[in-house]
Nucleic acid binder design. Sequence first.
DNA 1: CGCCTGCTTGAACGCTATCAAAAAACGTGG
DNA 2: CCACGTTTTTTGATAGCGTTCAAGCAGGCG
Lengths: 250, 250
Amino acid sequence: MDTKVDTRPSQDCKNCSLRKLSGLRPLSVPELKFVQDFKSGELACDPGMTLIAESAYSPHLYTVLDGWGFRYKTLEDGRRQILNFVVPGDMVGLQGAVLKYMDHSVEALTPMRLCVFERERFFSLFEQHADLAFDVTWIASREECILDEHLLSVGRRSALERSAYLLAFLYYRGLTSGLISKGRAHLPVTQALIADTLGLSIVHTNKTLKKLAARKLVAWKEKGCEILDADGLCAVAQWEPRAEAERPFI
Amino acid sequence: MDTKVDTRPSQDCKNCSLRKLSGLRPLSVPELKFVQDFKSGELACDPGMTLIAESAYSPHLYTVLDGWGFRYKTLEDGRRQILNFVVPGDMVGLQGAVLKYMDHSVEALTPMRLCVFERERFFSLFEQHADLAFDVTWIASREECILDEHLLSVGRRSALERSAYLLAFLYYRGLTSGLISKGRAHLPVTQALIADTLGLSIVHTNKTLKKLAARKLVAWKEKGCEILDADGLCAVAQWEPRAEAERPFI
DNA sequence: CGCCTGCTTGAACGCTATCAAAAAACGTGG
DNA sequence: CCACGTTTTTTGATAGCGTTCAAGCAGGCG
C-alpha cells in the first residue's frame, strides 16, 4: 500500500513507453517539448491505493502510463457505484483541474504508473498549445460518451446484457490501451467490482456471470475474467465497439 | 413541428438575453467580439423536434438560449434512456464537434431558442481564445460530473430516492438557468420522460411519484411537476446541490 | 363528439436483493 | 511446506421491489 514518487529527472516523453501504441496521435516537436516540461514526475502505486479522494483537494493531475484503475462514487450509507475504469492514455483528475472540485474517487486496481502534472500550470497548456487544449477536450468528450453508454446500460439493459456489455467494453479498452492482447485477454476484476459497476448485488452478479460462462463467452480464473468470445458478448449486449480513428494522448 | 432559422443578422451577443443571468462568467470585449463573429444564426424550434439525431452528421453546434430539451440514447429494440436535460447555457452537439460523431440524440421538450455555430470553425476558438477553450472544457467536465451523479443514482438509489434526486436536480438546473423561479417551480416533464430517465417503468414511476406527492414534496399538475419542497426531496435522495461559483457561457 | 396522449389503479408475475452458509483461492507467517 | 485468517466465489432459500398486463379515467384538440 505504499507510494513512491520517482525523484529522478523526468523520463523522456519522446521515448514514453506509450508512444509505441498504435492509434495515438503523434505529437509535434514543440508539443513534445511542452509536455516534457509540463511533466513534473512519475508516480508508481500498488493495487488498492486511492489516487484521488472525493472532495479532497489534490494539486495534481495525472495521465495513466500503465495499469488498471477505476473511478467511483459512494452514497452516505456506503453504497458504491463504479463510474468507469481508467487505462493507459486516460487522464485522471481532469474534473478537479477544470472545475476546482472532485466529485469522485479514483483507486488503483493493479500496480499503476502515472505521469504527474501540476494543476497550477494546467492553464498554460491552453495558452500555449491549442492542439493540446483540443485534445484535452476530446478526452473529456470521450469520457462523456462512455458514461452515456454506461447509463443506457445500467438503466435499460437486463442483468445478462449489462454484464456482457461491461466485459466486452473492458476487453476493448484493454486491447486499445495495450494492457491485454487477443491471446492474453485477462481482466483483473473481482465479481464485487463488476457488481458495483453494474448496479447489481454480488450474488446476482455471480449467477449472471455463470450464465455467460455456460455459454463459453467468458471464464473465471486466476482472480479475474478471461474473455473467450468478445463478439458473442457484444451480440448478447446489443452493442458494438466504435472503431476509433486517432486518439490523442498527453 | 416546424423549424425556422432566423435569417436576420445575428442578434447582438452583448445584449444576449442570457447575459443578465447571475452566475455567468462575464466575457471580455475581444471574447465577445469573437463569439459574435463565431455565431452564425439563431434557431427556434417547437416541442418534440429532434435537434440532433444519433449517428447523423450535423454541421452545427449549439448553445441553448431558452427552453428545455433532453439528450437520449436507444437500444435497437426501442428501449430508451434519457441521459440528461439541457437548459439555457448548455452546449448541444459538443461531442459531435470534438469526436466527429454523435452517439446520442437531442430533442426539444418545450419551445427552444438556440444559438448556432459552425463546427468547421470550432477549432479557431481554441486557436484564438485560450479562455474560451478552457470554458468549453469546463462545460464538458461539468456534464461528466452530472452524468457521474446520474449513474450513481440509477445504479444504487431506490426508485423513491432516484425520483427525488431527479426532481431536485431538475429544480436546481431550472433555477440557475432562469427557466423557473422559487415561486414558479413547474417542470415541463411527463411521467414517461421521468421513467426513461430513471430506468424505471412508467407504471412504477407513477406509483413512486404518488408517494412523493403524498409527502407534499411535489404536486402533479398542468402536464408537469410542481416542486413544493426541494430540501425535502434532497433529504430523501441523500443528495445536495453543489453551490457553483461562476459558470462559463459561450 | 371522438381520438389521442398522459395519468391512475389493481393484480400477477418474475427479476433481483437479501440472508445464510459453505467451498475455494489466496496471502502470510511459522 | 503447512496452518490459518481473509478474501473471493458459489449455492440455496426466501422475500420484495419493480415489471408487465389490462383497464379505466381525464383532459386537450381537431
